[in-house]
Amino acid sequence: MARYTGPKAKIARRFNDPIFGHSKALQKKAYPPGQHGRGRRKKQSEYAIQLMEKQKAKYTYGVLERQFANTFDRASRKSGITGEILLQMLEARLDNTVYRMGIAPTRRGARQLVSHKHITVNGELVNIPSYVVQPGDVVGVREKSKSVEAITDSLANNSAQKYPWIEWNKTEMNGKMIALPMRDEIPEKINEQLIVELYSK
């Protein structure tokens, strides 16, 4: 299964945003990576800014180029604001939903839990990270996996951050997606309009 396996700190420093979670490297070196990181030109072209925003969204949600392009294509065919629909579709991915529920501390960890068959949707085992969770679906931990240390530790350390579109049942170790999130409910610092402009060229 294809996925990004390169350095995370370098990507976070490129966008000056801890998109993979807390990063000490980002705190120590608040400038882009590379030989010319400190003295790099500040001014960027319009295309470069749009491309950077697309790359940031792609790395944030752990999606490869073709997957991202296909997701944008589906979003553009739906009625409504394309950028907002794009983010809703990315948020509805199973690996992202598992991460939002606190079952895994990172999206990369959530992807691994899904791939290793620890997660169910409506009681059925699903091991496809890109599976699209629909409003009303119940995502939970497989019965045999409820004692897995990585899962119990993540839930124990979870700051119980609540997302208005998710309803979590601590006892059953499952959660329901109540609705697709509105744009102002998604905490990611992504300017989706720049992505729309990039693909509109």
Rank of each mutant, 00 (worst) to 15 (best):
R14H: 12
R66C: 00
V139L: 11
V114G: 03
V121L: 00
P129W: 06
P33W: 00
A25S: 14
I85K: 10
I186M: 13
G39N: 12
K24Q: 13
N127P: 01
D73I: 10
K189M: 12
P7S: 05
N191A: 14
Y61D: 06
L198I: 07
S76G: 02
K162S: 13
T171H: 13
L51F: 12
V141D: 04
L180F: 11
I166Q: 12
K8Q: 14
R41C: 05
D137A: 11
V98E: 09
D137S: 12
P187G: 06
K117R: 15
S145W: 00
L51K: 11
I128V: 15
A69V: 12
V98T: 13
Q88S: 04
L155A: 01
H22F: 13
E167M: 07
P33Y: 01
K201Q: 14
M177K: 06
G102M: 03
E192H: 00
R77Q: 15
F72M: 14
I81H: 13
S200N: 15
Y131D: 08
K201G: 10
Y99V: 02
E46C: 00
W168R: 11
D95Q: 09
E91Y: 02
L94Q: 09
V98Y: 06
V133A: 11
K201C: 06
Q55C: 08
G39P: 03
E65M: 01
T82S: 14
L194F: 12
